[in-house]
Nucleic acid binder design. Structure first.
Length: 815
RNA sequence: GCCGGGAUGGCGGAACUGGCAGACGCGUCGGACUCAAAAUCCGAAGCCCUUCACUGGGUGUGAGGGUUCGAUUCCCUCUCCCGGCACCA
């Protein structure tokens, strides 16, 4: 055994060993229990950063631990390879996204290998591979057939100078981020996935994840879906056939409606103002609002509106209500029309005050009378109905039902459920993505690409300019096709899919990645899915995780899988921060993983990351902390070195050695398995090492001491695998430590022979007694009183009460 | 504004079900080794006061209050920090 701990030599050797012995390859075996451990796959952006290292270290620890616990573990890795950075880099370097992506993958793969992660590299997948996105195109066609895909006009950011669609984050202050050209809202036909068809199910499904996913992720998804129950109510328009339908969650306030608010884009507006002298000003107002509505994020605009000259009628009171177009009603939610109840809705209240519209109180707080003239704000809580005809005196909750019922019976209103969730727009006017398999035919309209023509391969021979729109639209060979239905010459769809589509199902492909007959066999999916532990950043709390849940249900309904939820447990790890900020190039506070590996080795990096904080919290980087981790490994190394070289003379292991061994096994096992608190597991190992070092001189030659070292090596294995493999082989383990079972502990060995009982007087610590666990209260009390210091506090006092917590403390309450 | 999460030494963090607060690590200080330094090893330490010293006492988990023999832990009020949502009718 080397005297010095030489991480590089050890790590290279064991990485080779694992490679040659195919240690990480896994084939499903129905007789063994399975564990699918997945970390969110990376975008191949260039090099691995500390966030990746943290993410993958946590996954690797669990994968190795579970394997030692007797599971067959699926632990795959791949690349989320489509996306804009590749395209931007290509534009900048006048090259192509493919080689850029491939080079990055090569670099990052070798970095991951140097960190010693236990991936089954045979299952590696790359989403820009036609053999991958082929199946995605197939899903698209099947979803289309099922009515889950549709086209709709929607407004996009359009740079007039580049003739390109921009993502929201590429619009800077109303201008293009690249050329600073003017950005306008351009309506374009877009492809959508009908995720709203699953809104209720996606919401309901969250219940089954309680306790297994972080609460805040569940809350965020719940709010994002944003379900509300209410009523659609029809308001007849004076002098017109049409009605205005509004959505409200407060039918109990219906009697308090004093005007009507329409969104500027509401389809009835034009009809309402037609031929009226208000038409001109209303149009001007709408134009102005459209320009301003792209307001800065988070800013609440001053409420404004304009009277249309038209009136509608409250279906229940028959009162005549002026119709306004306002800048605060959203077309995208509900019906784009709102019954305005200024007394009980703050927005309507502000608007009514500004434009001197009547305020009518119909809900009174219990035991109070509100006067509209005195009100400073709307009363939005529930209360007792007033000025509401036959519903007077009812509580809001009761009146809601009663009024809804009343409206339904007269066919003036209907119960309705609304969601904030919108359908998923998947069209991207971008080159580097999976082509949408559709054809535009002059005769037949939109025609799906026949399945046997998949994949629709993204052509490689394009020039990216960043202007003039998608290069696919100029690629003659790609563009021109004959219509699969009528044979006429037709045009291929040039939009590509949102890259979130690839990541919505990659976890299924891993179970059977080489399958060229189907996306994956049902059998493999049933064997491995769901993912038992999913690990990734909180930034995906809504989008990626929601889309994956949606896709899983779609694939279930298409007959591919039998599950509802793809990810059984979710761990969202915190950021890696340094000097109080997230590591980033612009802040200049990045620590390069390669540098770390060169200086200390992968095991030190892994140990520090796991030790520095619990996984869900942010990790504060500390160079000295890394030193500390390295120092710990060196200390352990020396402990083994001295032992195998018989440097210690003693052969008398203390009685409590077995207690220590068992206590440490218990603590480490439970911390990993139950709480995923790796930092405390490591501190338990450190305490164990400290103890072993302290007894080494008197017991280093004994078998039980050497046995304890063996246990230590096994416990260290998931954390610092190269290190543990090396010490394991020195201690006589054959092959990889991964094939050795995780140790169990003996509960009998955990029973202590002597315990500490704390003596308190009025809750203040005064003495400690060292006693056998079974000692009676009377005896403990006697000994406590015999203690000199305790006695001095009891002197001259009356003992009111004695509290004895067995095995812990005795407390004298005195006066 | 609404909804979450959090606040513990100089720092990262620990503490079972309400029972010795500060485990473990970093940093600091003192000592050993060394010509010297680094590395390593041993030891000290929440803070304040007290004692020549041994010691002794008080106080302490963001602030204030409450429940309890006993509160980092439970309840109420407040402050600050982080995250999410934000005209959603």
């Amino acid at each position: 055994m080397q005297e010095k701990y030489l991480p590089h030599e050890i790590e290279a050797r064991w990485q080779d060993f694992w490679d040659h012995h195919h240690t990480f390859q896994v084939q499903h075996n129905p007789s063994r229990k399975k564990y699918y451990c997945l970390v969110m796959f990376p975008y191949p952006s260039g090099r691995i950063h500390m966030g990746h290292v943290r993410n993958y270290t946590i996954g690797d620890l669990l994968a190795r631990f579970k394997r030692m616990r007797g599971y067959q573990v699926l632990h795959p890795m791949g690349w989320d390879a489509f996306g804009m950075p590749a395209e931007n880099a290509a534009i900048q370097n006048n090259s192509h996204p493919a080689p850029w992506t491939e080079e990055n993958i090569t670099i990052m793969r070798s970095q991951l290998k140097r960190l010693g992660f236990s991936y089954d590299w045979n299952r590696e997948l790359v989403t820009c591979d036609p053999q991958y996105y082929k199946w995605e195109q197939k899903f698209f066609l099947q979803m289309w057939e099922k009515g889950l895909v549709y086209r709709k006009e929607s407004r996009l950011n359009w740079c007039t100078a580049c003739a390109t669609v921009l993502a929201n984050e590429q619009v800077v202050g109303g201008n293009c981020w690249r050329c600073e050209g003017k950005v306008v809202q351009k309506p374009m036909d877009q492809w959508f996935f009908k995720i709203t068809a699953y809104a209720d199910e996606l919401l309901e499904g969250l219940k089954s994840l309680e306790g297994k996913w972080p609460d805040r992720v569940l809350t965020m998804q719940r709010e994002w879906i944003g379900r509300s129950e209410g009523v659609l109510v029809d308001f007849p328009i004076e002098g017109m056939e049409e009605k205005i339908t509004i959505y409200t969650t407060r039918p109990d306030t219906l009697f308090g409606t004093t005007f009507m608010s329409l969104a500027p884009e509401h389809p009835l507006v034009e009809k309402l103002i037609e031929g009226k002298h208000e038409a001109g000003v209303v149009r001007t107002f709408i134009d102005k609002t459209k320009r301003e509505s792209k307001s800065e994020e988070g800013e609440v605009l001053e409420k404004e509106g304009i009277f249309t000259g038209a009136y509608c009628v409250n279906p229940i009171t028959k009162k005549r209500l002026p119709i306004y177009v306002t800048n605060f009603v959203l077309m995208g939610y509900g019906t784009g029309a709102v019954m305005a109840v200024p007394a009980h809705d703050q927005r309507d209240f502000e608007f009514a005050q500004k434009y001197h519209l009547p305020i009518s109180v119909v809900i009174q707080p219990p035991g109070k009378i509100m006067d509209p003239r005195q009100m400073k704000a709307a009363f939005e809580e529930e209360g007792i109905l007033t000025n509401s005809g036959q519903f007077n005196g009812m509580k809001s909750s009761v009146a809601k039902l009663a009024i809804t019922d009343f409206l339904e019976r007269r066919k003036r209103g209907y119960k309705a459920v609304q969601y904030k969730l919108k359908d998923w727009g998947i069209s991207r006017q971008r080159y580097w993505g999976a082509p949408i398999p559709a054809i535009h035919c002059g005769q037949c309209g939109l025609v799906p690409v026949p399945e046997d023509q998949l994949p629709v391969v993204l052509p490689r021979d394009v020039q990216l300019t960043g202007t003039q729109g998608s290069p696919l639209a100029r690629h003659e060979a790609f563009l021109h096709v004959s219509c699969p239905r009528c044979g006429a010459s037709a045009r291929r769809e040039t939009d590509t899919m949102d890259t979130f589509v690839e990541s919505s199902w990659y976890f299924f492909r891993y179970v059977d990645p080489q399958n060229n007959q189907s996306p994956f066999s049902q059998e493999s999916a049933e064997s491995w899915c769901p993912v038992d532990q999913y690990i990734g950043g909180i930034e995906h709390a809504v989008l990626h995780l929601l889309y994956s849940r949606f896709f899983t249900r779609v694939l279930r309904d298409l007959g591919y899988v039998k599950l509802n939820e793809p990810f059984e447990r979710l761990l969202t790890q915190g950021m890696v921060v340094k000097d109080g900020a997230k590591m980033s190039k612009s802040k200049g506070n990045v620590v390069d993983p390669d540098y770390l590996i060169e200086k200390y080795g992968a095991d030190t990096a892994r140990l520090f990351i796991l030790f520095a904080s619990p996984p869900e919290r942010d990790l504060a980087w500390s160079d000295q902390g890394v030193e500390g981790a390295f120092r710990f490994l060196t200390r352990v190394w020396h402990l083994f070195h001295e032992t195998v070289n018989n440097r210690w003379a003693g052969n008398q292991p203390p009685a409590e050695l077995s207690f220590w061994v068992n206590k440490t096994i218990k603590k480490v096992t439970e911390d990993i398995e139950e709480n995923l608190h790796f930092n405390t597991a490591i501190s338990a190992i450190m305490e164990f090492v400290n103890y072993l070092s302290s007894i080494a001189p008197l017991s280093g030659l004994s078998d039980s001491f050497r046995g304890a070292l063996k246990t230590l090596v096994v416990l260290l294995n998931p954390f610092v695998p190269h290190f543990a493999e090396e010490l394991g082989s020195i201690m006589g383990f054959q092959g990889s430590m991964l094939n050795y079972p995780w140790p169990s502990y003996d509960p009998k060995a955990l029973v202590e022979k002597e315990i500490t009982v704390v003596v308190q007087v009025n809750g203040k610590l005064r003495a400690q007694l060292f006693v056998v666990p079974e000692l009676s209260q009377t005896e403990i009390e006697k000994r406590a009183r015999a203690d000199e210091k305790t006695a001095s506090y009891l002197q001259g006092k009356e003992i009111v009460k004695v509290i004895h917590v067995p095995g812990r403390l005795i407390n004298f309450v005195v006066k």
